[in-house]
Write a protein that binds this DNA or RNA. Structure first.
Length: 304
DNA sequence: TAGATACCTTATAG
DNA sequence: ACTATAAGGTATC
C-alpha cells in the first residue's frame, strides 16, 4: 500500500472533500462503511471516501481512498494516487479566482461563501455517462445505489487492505449484461438505455471522450446520440467529466432557481435558456457557479 | 420545431 | 394501511 498527503494550503481556494464528492456531481465515490470506521466518525466529517482507478501502466484496477484531516487530503492506494487525485478532484482549479470572477449577486455570493473549497469533479467519461443516464427522475441516494449495484454485479473485484472493492464496470462488461438483469438491479426504464449506450461504446461506434474535441454546444449535441442522453445529461457529462466548465445542466433545481431569481433567463427552449443563464452566471465558469448554487439551494440555503 | 405523454421504481407526504 | 406524488429526464408521437 502507498500513502501520501496533499496539504490543502497549497491548493488555491482550499478544498472541501465532503462537499466535492457528496454534492450530487459524482456517483463514483463512496463513503467507507460507517461501522468499520467508528474511530473516524468520532472526528466528524473526516470519513474515508474511495473510488477506483485504471492506471494505464497497470493491468489491474486500483483502489484509491482519501479523507480530509487536519488541513490535508490523506490518501491510501495500490498506486501513487497523487496525480490521480489532482485530476479527479480538479485540485489545480483556482477557486479563489473563480469565486472572484463570478457575477456579484447576492445568491451567488452566499452560495460561494457557504461551501468554500468545493470543487467540480472530473469523473472518468464512461462512468460519468452511465451514472448520469441513471440519474433521470431519480434521487441522489438511489443514483448512487445503482452505481454500487452495477459495480458489484459487473465490476472486477479488487482486494485492498484486506477488503474487497469493485472497479466500475467496463463498457464490455456492461454490454454483456441483459436488460432483465439491469432491471433487477433497480434501473427501471433506464436499463435499456444503459445497455444500448454501453454497446455503442464497446463496439467503437462512439465514445463520450470524443465530445471533448468539439466546441461546447456541438459537444452537447454530440453526446445526445447516446441512448438515454438528452441535453441535461449531456451537460452533466460535459461539466463533470469533460472539462466544459461553462456547461450549466438545466435540472429541476436550476429551473426553479431561474423562475425565482432570473425570470428573464427563461427563454422556453433548453438551448436558449441555457445560453441566457450561462451568461447570467458569468460565462466561462458558469458550471462552477451552477454547482455552488445547486448545492446551496438543495441544502436549504436562501436569500432574504 | 414545439408540445404532450408514457415510462420503472421507490421514498415520502397526505 | 393506502394512494398520490415526485425524484438532478428522455424517447416517441
Amino acid at each position: 500500500m502507498q500513502r501520501g498527503r496533499i496539504d490543502a494550503t497549497t491548493l488555491a481556494g482550499g478544498v472541501d472533500l465532503q462537499s466535492t464528492v457528496e454534492s450530487g456531481q459524482s456517483y463514483l465515490w463512496s463513503r467507507e462503511d460507517e461501522t468499520t470506521y467508528e474511530r473516524d466518525r468520532a472526528h466528524g466529517g473526516d470519513a474515508w471516501y474511495w473510488t477506483t482507478l485504471r492506471p494505464t501502466d497497470r493491468d489491474d484496477p486500483a483502489v484509491c481512498r482519501v479523507r480530509q484531516r487536519e488541513g490535508a487530503l490523506e490518501w491510501e492506494s495500490h498506486v501513487d494516487a497523487d496525480p490521480h487525485l489532482r485530476r479527479l478532484l480538479r485540485l489545480d482549479d483556482d477557486l479563489a479566482a473563480i469565486a472572484a470572477d463570478a457575477p456579484d449577486d447576492e445568491l451567488l455570493r452566499a452560495a460561494f461563501d457557504a461551501y468554500r473549497g468545493m470543487r467540480i469533479v472530473r469523473d472518468p467519461p464512461f462512468g460519468s455517462l452511465i451514472s448520469f443516464i441513471c440519474s433521470a427522475q431519480m434521487r441522489v441516494a438511489r443514483i448512487h445505489a445503482m452505481q454500487t449495484a452495477l459495480r458489484r454485479a459487473y465490476g472486477e473485484p479488487i482486494t485492498f487492505d484486506g477488503e474487497t472493492y469493485h472497479a466500475y464496470p467496463t463498457p464490455a462488461a456492461l454490454a454483456g449484461a441483459s436488460e432483465a438483469e439491469l432491471r433487477d438491479l433497480g434501473l427501471g426504464y433506464r436499463a435499456p438505455y444503459v445497455l444500448r449506450t454501453a454497446e455503442m461504446v464497446e463496439s467503437g461506434e462512439a465514445g463520450p471522450e470524443e465530445a471533448g474535441d468539439l466546441s461546447y454546444e456541438a459537444a452537447r449535441e454530440s453526446l445526445t446520440r447516446f441512448v438515454g442522453v438528452g441535453e441535461k445529461v449531456a451537460d452533466c457529462v460535459l461539466l463533470f467529466s469533460l472539462d466544459f466548465l461553462e456547461a450549466v445542466p438545466l435540472d429541476t433545481w436550476i429551473r426553479t432557481t431561474i423562475e425565482e431569481y432570473y425570470p428573464d433567463c427563461d427563454r422556453g427552449s433548453y438551448a436558449e435558456t441555457s445560453r441566457a443563464i450561462r451568461d447570467a452566471f458569468g460565462g466561462e465558469y458558469a458550471g462552477y457557479v451552477q454547482t455552488y448554487v445547486f448545492h446551496y439551494l438543495r441544502n436549504g440555503g436562501t436569500v432574504a
